[in-house]
Design a protein around this nucleic acid. Structure first.
Lengths: 183, 183
DNA sequence: GCGCGAACTTGACGCTGACAAGATTGCGTG
DNA sequence: CACGCAATCTTGTCAGCGTCAAGTTCGCGC
């Protein structure tokens, strides 16, 4: 408790976020608690409150970070000349590699969905995804279809509903996205 | 629903389940509490505990009920001669009409995923879904693709991520599922 | 080197889920 | 018909949670 711990942590905000990511990866979004995170990081029970006003604020920050990471990954795929298949693969790769972020991002009842930073990052990711099907007839329908396909696969994979297969998830989505969107 | 009063305060189990469905539809699975449900139904704070041993038990019952309803809907579609498009439409219709059930069903961190009744109903639903693509090359991949498509669409629709369209969700899934699976 | 404000602690409040023990009531059994 | 039993529900209690308010410590600009 009082053994040489500096009063100021240094980067408590980052530390709490990382602890939250770890806890959510292990036990899901429901298994995360502000006091528990404070304990993991080694500060008092109200320490995190100063950085994220409340529990929803912490999850808002996590979701915003997630949308930013996703938008970056999608943008990088586009600028590297990737087609819609690569876009889908990047989406699934993000969901698998950043499972905690991904699970929070699509539970708007857990955070403040009108946060400006979050909205901006989310729109950026949405635009990158929609850009991949802009040249098709009824692009709105095509974008929803493509998004549904990769999002559903990522969700089912992360919840363990597909656990009986031992294939590589990114390879799988490449396979059936190819047979559907490259007629 | 409350025709007979077999006990002190009626059919408490059904009443609590219905109250949970209502609460989850309004505020999401995170916004439901055992004590709150007891209050809504008009019993003391520990009344529900006797029917569902704990909070996870309540959600287990809800999830099992949901998988049963889904399996029934899919089986009915199959016996009515529906093809894979109709199967997908039935899936999405279930997700939209029974949103509370659907949201709990795919959050295994909230309930006891090894409950026998739940496992049986879930397998039944999975078999009905897989049967629609059994006659294709690589049926495992096709079934995952079909499931991903409708599941992703249902999830995105229910979380409000697709809210900018005012089209009918079942008609939408029929449209793009048709263009993908009826080559 | 000093004070000001940000970062963190301490303490308290009402809420929650879980458990234990007591009260009430329908129902089968004798 | 009555009696006892077990299922149902209540009451009371406990630790833990999120949130707020007030106090303490310390980095940093002036």
């Amino acid at each position: 408790m009082t053994t040489g711990r500096p009063y100021h942590h240094g980067d408590l905000r980052r530390a709490v976020l990382d602890a939250a990511i770890e806890a959510i990866t292990e036990h899901g979004p429901a298994g995360v608690g502000l006091r528990d995170l404070a304990r993991r990081v080694g500060v008092s029970h109200a320490g995190p409150v100063h950085h994220f006003k409340d529990k929803a604020g912490l999850l808002t920050a996590l979701a915003a970070e997630g949308f930013t990471l996703l938008a970056d990954a999608l943008d990088a795929t586009v600028t590297a000349g990737g087609d819609i298949i690569e876009l889908g693969a990047a989406y699934v790769r993000f969901a698998v590699e950043h499972r905690a972020h991904f699970e929070v991002m699509f539970r708007p009842d857990l955070y403040h969905a009108d946060d400006p930073a979050l909205v901006e990052a989310r729109d950026r990711a949405g635009a990158a995804l929609a850009g991949g099907v802009a040249d098709r007839p009824d692009p709105e329908l095509a974008s929803v279809a493509a998004w549904s396909l990769v999002h559903g696969f990522a969700t089912l994979w992360n919840t363990g509903a597909l656990s009986r297969t031992d294939r590589d998830p990114v390879a799988m989505v490449r396979a059936f996205a190819g047979s559907m969107f490259l007629t």
